[in-house]
């Protein structure tokens, strides 16, 4: 049984990754799961300088999922390179670094710093965080802005570039095509869906930021649909995510056209989810005599 997948020239031992922002840089969940068994760790977003993030409350529960408005709190690229990368290098897993910024120059600066670090296999560019006012989402909701920033990052990046797309758009295929046309090596989606929760007893917003990004199993059908649409609109590979809790869920994304999958909010519910998904995919392959996992990709 072969579970290897290759995306933009990088080969992963299996298609199971962690969704940015739900897994830190692996230190916390390394207490629960063997990071060596993951296809890749996708880190929490990092910027050129430290970001404080949003006020609390930053998280709220909703039916079958959650809202978050962390606001991309991060320690900045200097600390990240000194602390997080050496930690991850100890493991036999690929490192994909998620990059955020407020301006194109911010992104480029971080991308250039990461270019000096050969242990980083890929860059995932966050142009879809709904919780910060500047940057991020501003680049991810207009196809011309996405085209521009993708092109600028590609000029400076030494690793393959994955553009992480927002689901908060009218037509996901338009965004996918814009990123591809600008030279993106792969796409990842979906980021969270903008939502809101109101505490009716206190008559206040549940989140200090008022709106937040929704994740969790409740969004999975939306994610599967968007992954299917994006994967069929472009030739570059797609990494799929959104509410994956089990191996069966992951297979659904592969069949929809994803070349790999990421586990996000469900890490919070069950810290062993990533490994259970790895094992669940293998069980599915045994059950249906699938020799190569690549036979599943886009098979519907």
């Amino acid at each position: 049984m072969n579970t290897q997948v290759t995306i933009a020239g990088v080969t992963f031992k299996n298609p199971v990754m962690t969704a940015s922002g739900t897994f830190g840089s692996g230190m916390e969940y390394g207490e629960f799961v063997d990071l060596n068994r993951l296809g890749a760790v996708v880190t929490k977003g990092v910027a050129n300088v430290p970001w404080e993030g949003n006020p609390t409350p930053r998280v709220a529960e909703v039916y079958g999922g959650m809202l978050n408005a962390i606001g991309l709190q991060n320690p900045g690229i200097d600390v990240f390179l000194q602390r997080d990368i050496p930690f991850l290098k100890q493991y036999d897993t690929k490192i994909i670094v998620n990059v955020c910024g407020r301006t194109v120059e911010d992104y480029v600066e971080t991308v250039e710093r990461l270019g000096e670090e050969p242990a980083v296999s890929m860059l995932e560019i966050n142009v879809s965080c709904p919780n910060v006012k500047e940057g991020a989402i501003a680049f991810g909701q207009k196809s011309d802005a996405l085209f521009h920033i993708t092109g600028e990052i590609k000029k400076h990046a030494r690793q393959p570039v994955v553009m992480k797309l927002s689901p908060n758009v009218t037509d996901i295929t338009e965004m996918a095509k814009a990123a591809e046309a600008a030279g993106a090596d792969a796409l990842s989606l979906i980021n969270t869906i903008t939502g809101m929760k109101i505490d009716i007893h206190r008559r206040k917003f549940a989140l200090a930021n008022q709106t937040g990004g929704m994740s969790g199993p409740a969004i999975k059908p939306i994610a599967v649909r968007m992954v299917y649409q994006a994967a069929h609109a472009v030739k570059i590979p797609v990494i799929g995510m959104g509410g994956i809790a089990t191996g069966e869920d992951a297979v659904e994304f592969l069949l929809a056209g994803a070349s790999a999958v990421s586990i996000g909010a469900m890490n919070f519910v069950n810290p062993y989810t990533t490994i259970e998904v790895v094992e669940g995919i293998e069980a599915y392959m045994r059950q249906y005599n699938v020799e190569n996992i690549t036979d599943l990709i886009g098979a519907v």
Binding site: R58, F268, P271
Partner: peptide, 15 residues
């Protein structure tokens, strides 16, 4: 504070 992960990964429960 409201928490999501409880183990320090999500950065939801900061002070």
């Amino acid at each position: 504070e409201h928490m999501a992960c409880g183990v320090g990964a999500c950065l939801g429960c900061v002070v």
